[in-house]
Design a protein around this nucleic acid. Sequence first.
DNA 1: TGACGACGCCACTTTATTCT
DNA 2: AGAATAAAGTGGCGTCGTCA
Length: 493
Amino acid sequence: MFEVEPVEKKRSGGRPAAVDKTFRAFDPHQVLLLPPSLNDWLPEGHLARFVADLVDEVLDLSPVLADYTDKRGYPPYDPRLMLRLLIYGCTIGVRSSRAIERKCTDDVAFRFLAADQAPDFRSISRFRRRHLDALATLFTQSLHLATKLGMVKMGRVALDGTKLQANASKHKAMSYGRLVDKEERIEADTAALEAKAQALLADAQATDEAEDQMFGTDGKDTDLPAELDRREKRLAKLQAARAQIEAEAAAKARRRAQDKERRRQERGGTSDEQAVTDAGDKAAAKAHPKPKAQANFTDPDSRIMKNSDGAYIQAYNAQAVVDEKHQVTTAADVTTNPSDALNYTTMLDQSAANTGRHPKQALVDAGYCSEANLNAARDRQLVCDTDTFMATGRLAHDEQVPPAPRGRIPANATLKERMARKLRTRPGKAAYSRRKAIVEPVFGQIMTCQSGRRLLLRSEDGARGEWRLLAACHNLREIFRHAGTAGLATVVG
DNA sequence: TGACGACGCCACTTTATTCT
DNA sequence: AGAATAAAGTGGCGTCGTCA
């Protein structure tokens, strides 16, 4: 498009040329004779073209469009435009609404996608919030697309979790004990303040009236009500945080009591749901939060968790199931519980629901190893024909891998011993050794290329939506890499 | 401390609908 | 028919929170 033509050597302007050198033609003030077509600005096979085709031709946008029912009102931006921007941005690591807005003037690819429009960052942000659920369905859509292109085999999958830093600082977290303390202090102070305000009011009313008449009404004693107002707001926040911790403690106690009652009934061979509910209610009413239980003021749903480096961060626990063949994610979810162990069954079920198939093998690390999960793994083998390889413990740095077992499995071996044994056999080792190679690249890509280390949206729903969008965009990246725009054509055609 | 991002409130614009 | 109103999205502005 741009011809390289040597320019006549010229000593122009006041700047002396250091060397006698011919440069390529460059005229910043050149006026284009025709308005440029945005289409020409982007090379064939660019990721942005892929995203544009995807949004325009392939994706089902009805979940988004369904939200626009009223014909009235200021016309919103075309959802296709917004989706193009959000998807492309999320794929290359430009995720914040303001960053996207800037790119719409800065970046050729974004200008191409937005047809040279630049929505305000609030519009982008609000669109994202509003259609968070719909955006999350992009995840299943991306998965179905990958499946159509033969990229999902469900032979071997790996399940793993990573901690996503919430949009909240752990310094804004407060323990239950301090919360109660603070609340009491503020209440006491407020009572004192109110008394003072009353006294002042009564005392000064006469003089005030006189002064007002003399100087007009802009007294200085507005400070006191303002102070009271601030305290009121703080108190409300504290109480909300406290209520949250208490509700959680109650819910936990309820679950425990119900489980206990069920087990008791199982042993006795009876079944009485009412008794289970009652036991739960009773326990919930009696529940008392631990003084150390934490709540965060900025994002109450997030929790302090330990990340893989051992550092404590305010976070969500993000889970993903990844198919070995092309590193396509088949399930993605977020929980507020730092433990991975609770997600073994739910995640594999999600994966099965999303793909319609059960994997031949599932690889999980020691974080998932629990009595319940070992049992669940055994059942899965029977019901879904999924062979689970679950690490039963981590090796210390200098620890040697125990030798492969030989001979018959002892009849009295526990499930855990059997699992440990299975992982030490040659096929067990071979399968499990693939685990890291399957999930790590996915998490790595999402963290670095898509800047997914830190979440932008608050609340559990926000975190889940973001994680699913990240996972969806990861899948789209893989599709782009594997099939390119041509691949889309085969799906549409 | 300043830059940056999310979000809430309010004013404004646009459009369809309802009222007079 | 024309005015008033309701509804919805956008932008301006301020606030809060995070991070380097």
